[in-house]
Structures are given as structure tokens and as C-alpha cells.
Design a protein around this nucleic acid. Structure first.
Lengths: 150, 150
DNA sequence: CCTGAAAATCGCAGTCG
DNA sequence: CGACTGCGATTTTCAGG
């Protein structure tokens, strides 16, 4: 599952995580490589599954989702299909992590209002007991994985 | 803070969230617009702060971060600077949300091993009591905000 | 929001160390 | 085998309508 990356690969990943739309020629300049060499490496990172995609990052508040919340769900039993169906349908659920601990699921939910959030939490409460925390702020700008050693 | 978006804007956001590197000409085809019109709209979404950036999405396991965890931190007192300093330094902390509730901070931490995670949690425990949940799996593929109404 | 032309970039050969 | 060069096709950018 793990791929061997040299420091050039990490530089490329750093640049593409900062600016995913940078042209390959400019990227080549930044990591001191030729355009074709950098293209080869990027393609390799993509096919090896290191880079899983490119995403525009959208400001939630700017598009009307004024409320962000973390909801933890205690889910008794093992029939997970009904929950998964809800996850598919409710696009307000941005992320769903299955974790260890009593609260088996941790969800990130974006809502337009508290009333809207309440409705979603009510739906989730049908599956088990929920704990909801409203997010005041994101205290870190975006950050992806960086080189672990040096 | 909120911007008015028509359905074409939402289509553009959808495409760019799915494939952030799609050429503007291809994007124009997909939303049935000319290249220059779609370029204008994309630039507008960027300058208005709707699109905050473009990111390559990197597979954590593929680059050696075998362990992902959610750590909640109960933080007594109000001097937050020392914690913020740690957040800057420890690049393994991918995300940090300040929330309501007893656990004022919710952090997403990527580690190369349980031993590595333990070291980071120990650092965090210097600030307050922590609750750690290891992530088994991400049960949703990437998903950003989508049109709320119609 | 569209057209159109110039400049930059991309993708694919072939070639070198 | 990984990195560089050259050329045609595509894309980006910017003018004007």
C-alpha cells in the first residue's frame, strides 16, 4: 500500500496540494525539472494511487452553509446498510469516518441553518444516540500529508 | 458572506470539485457554455472567495501514514497560543476544529504508526485531557458542498 | 455571453546519459 | 530507466463585439 517517494516527489505533492491547477511547465520550474520529467512523475503518482484526484475547495459559508457541525453516532447492532443509504442521500453529510470507541461514526455535517442541522441530526438519531458539536472555526488552513522524515 | 449562485455556477462547482484540473474548454462543454464565459465565471467564483483553492488529494496510506485518528481535546483556560504553536509545528495534525461542548477542539491526526500517534497524543495531552478514536475507514468518497435547494 | 487570434501549454515522439 | 528535446494539437488569454 505504501509507495517509495523521494524528495522531488514530496516537492511535487507539496506544490500540487497548495495549487492543484498549476501548469506542469510551471511545476517543473518550481521543482527544478524538465516539463516531461515532471509529467512522468505526476502521472506515476496518479496511477500508483498516491494522488487520488484534484478538487476545487469551496468556502462553505460563501455558498450558504452557515453551520458546520461534527456529529458522533453511537450505532448499536451491525446492519449498516440503512445508514449508508442515508449518507448517500443527504449530501449535507460531507464526511463520515468509522472509528473505534463507543461512537462508531464521526460525521461532518454542513447545514444552512440550525433548523436545517436539527432536521439532519433527527434523521441520524433514528440510528442511534448522537452527540453534536457546532464548529466555531477551523483553526488551521488546509493541510495535507507532508514528508514524514526529511 | 454568502454569494448568489445560479444553477450554472453550481454545475461549475460540481465539476471542479470532481475534477479540479479539467481544462476550461472541456468544462465549458460540460456546462454548455463558451470557453470565455466559463473562464469569467470561474475567475469570479475565485475572486469572490467561493473557490478558495485547488488541491491534489493525496492517499494517506500510500504515502506512509497508516494510522488516522480523531483526537478531541478538553482545553481548560483561555490561553490558546501554545496550542496554536504546536498545530503549526506538528504537520501530522491535518485539521483542527474549535467546537462547542466540553471538548473544545477536534483534531484529525495522521501518523505513520501507533507509536507515532502515541507521541503526538502525548504532546496534545500536555494541554488538556484527550479522547482518541482510531479511524477504521472513510465510508464516504470525497464530497464537497452541493446546491442546497434547486 | 460570444468570436477569434496570439501566446502558452500539453502530449507524444525520438534521443541521450 | 529516468530525464531532455522538438513538434503538432490543444488550451489559455485577451482583445473586441
Amino acid at each position: 500500500m505504501a509507495v517509495n517517494l523521494d524528495s522531488t516527489d514530496w516537492s511535487i505533492l507539496g506544490e500540487l496540494q497548495r495549487d492543484g491547477r498549476v501548469p506542469l511547465t510551471e511545476l517543473a520550474r518550481r521543482v527544478s525539472l524538465s516539463a516531461s520529467a515532471v509529467t512522468d512523475r505526476v502521472r506515476r503518482l496518479e496511477t500508483e494511487g498516491v494522488i487520488t484526484g484534484y478538487r476545487a475547495e469551496v468556502d462553505l459559508a460563501a455558498v450558504g452553509f452557515a453551520v458546520l457541525a461534527m456529529v458522533r453516532l453511537k450505532y448499536p447492532g451491525s446492519r449498516h446498510e440503512p445508514l449508508h443509504r442515508l449518507l448517500e442521500e443527504r449530501s449535507e453529510i460531507l464526511e463520515c469516518l468509522r472509528t473505534t470507541g463507543e461512537d462508531c461514526y464521526t460525521l461532518k455535517v454542513a447545514a444552512t441553518s440550525m433548523r436545517h442541522l436539527e432536521r439532519i441530526v433527527d434523521e441520524l438519531a433514528g440510528f442511534g444516540s448522537t452527540t453534536t458539536n457546532i464548529v466555531y472555526s477551523q483553526t488551521l488552513p488546509y493541510r495535507g500529508p507532508q514528508a514524514s522524515c526529511g
